[in-house]
């Protein structure tokens, strides 16, 4: 039992990331009808927002600390972060420690700008073009974005720490009443799950309870009719694209402590997220979320040693295997609508 819970928990953080990316992909696909292969790059840019903020707050100048000496007895030179000097040591400490959550403040406007620019500047011209061309142009864009990031941040992963309050593991086993120490789970992953649940809930609530969301949902079902009502659906869809970009970006920011950001992480996640979208059913928002968690958890179960010894290599292929089976048995995915992306 505790082992099962542990695996479910282990699947949650990856599952949350898949779900968040897949949600954005589906929003874009559902509203604009565009297959966006650059969506993973948005996730990656988010993660690098965290890196940037961490770099900014740890920017330092060299200072001689008169109170300390090195082993030769000379005064010690120390790196003094500007934030410490500006706001005092405790505030500086706080900023550095909480740089990842703080990065969300940076990420939201950045992602909005990136998303809206992308939609207005490029995607807009591809609404009417074949899906193959949409895939190809956004694929090209993804390469460009990741290469730009590589140019500025280099090719190596950049470790980005979680706030120290959440850095350690938590003993969920003890909380749930099992033998202490059996279900050990890193705090931050738990935070990530909660965070994504809030974001997902927020997106659904937004779509469900605001007029804006209602129009968008109506537009997803039948763009032309909504257009005929004299509602400017295009502008709303642009904003939806921005929102999807923000969701992907926030998912990336918060994922930075779990996976040290590297320039190709977007592509790695994109491939899997696409599989998730297809499994969930192209165009279905609940499908995307459900499939994201489902596949994340399945993957974590497949990585259990007991399972691996039974079916060697299953952990490597489980997601793809599920995708293949789902596509062949339920062509529209788990919750897909009729007539989406069909001949």
């Amino acid at each position: 039992m505790d082992a099962i819970i542990l695996q479910i928990l282990n699947g949650l953080d990856k599952g949350s990331a898949y779900a968040l990316i897949a949600l954005g992909l589906t929003l874009i696909f559902g509203t604009l009808g565009v297959v966006n292969f650059a969506h993973g790059a948005l996730f990656m840019i988010g993660a690098f927002c965290a890196v940037t903020v961490q770099k900014l707050v740890t920017l330092s100048f060299e200072e001689v600390d008169p109170t300390r000496t090195d082993f030769l007895g000379n005064p010690l030179k120390v790196q003094m972060p500007y934030v410490d000097a500006l706001f005092g040591p405790s505030a500086g400490e706080f900023l550095i420690n909480w740089s990842v959550p703080l990065a969300i403040v940076l990420a939201i406007p950045v992602m909005l700008v990136v998303g809206i620019t992308m939609e207005r500047g490029l995607i807009k011209h591809f609404y009417k073009r074949p899906h193959a061309e949409q895939i190809l142009v956004t694929f090209g864009l993804a390469i460009v974005l990741q290469e730009i990031v590589r140019y500025f941040f280099g090719a190596n992963p950049i470790p980005t720490g979680a706030p120290s309050a959440f850095a350690g593991p938590m003993d969920i086993g003890a909380i749930l009443g099992f033998t202490p120490g059996t279900v050990i789970y890193p705090y931050w992953r738990f935070v990530y799950f909660i965070f994504s649940a809030i974001v997902i809930g927020g997106v659904f609530a937004f779509l469900q309870f605001t007029t804006f969301g209602m129009v968008v949902r109506a537009g997803m079902n039948d763009r032309e009719t909504v257009g005929l009502l004299g509602i400017n659906i295009d502008r709303r869809f642009t904003i939806m694209f921005g929102i999807a970009a923000v969701v992907a970006g926030m998912a990336g920011v918060m994922y930075a402590p779990i996976l040290s950001p590297n320039f190709h992480m977007g592509m790695d996640f994109l491939v899997l997220s696409f599989v998730v979208v297809v499994v969930g059913g192209m165009g279905s928002l609940p499908g995307a979320v459900a499939a994201g968690f489902l596949l994340g958890i399945l993957q974590s179960f497949a990585s259990m040693n007991e399972v691996k010894s039974l079916i060697p290599g299953i952990d490597q292929v489980i997601i793809y295997l599920v995708a293949i089976i789902v596509l062949l048995t339920r062509p529209r995915g788990l919750m897909g609508r009729r007539g989406v992306m069909e001949e």
Binding site: H131, V271, V278, G313, Q316, A323, I324, L327, E343
Partner: peptide, 19 residues
Amino acid sequence: RSGIYFSILTLAFAQMSYN
């Protein structure tokens, strides 16, 4: 399957082989 579903299936098979 056809369209994007075909693309994803081929991708899935290739990634499986790679892994």
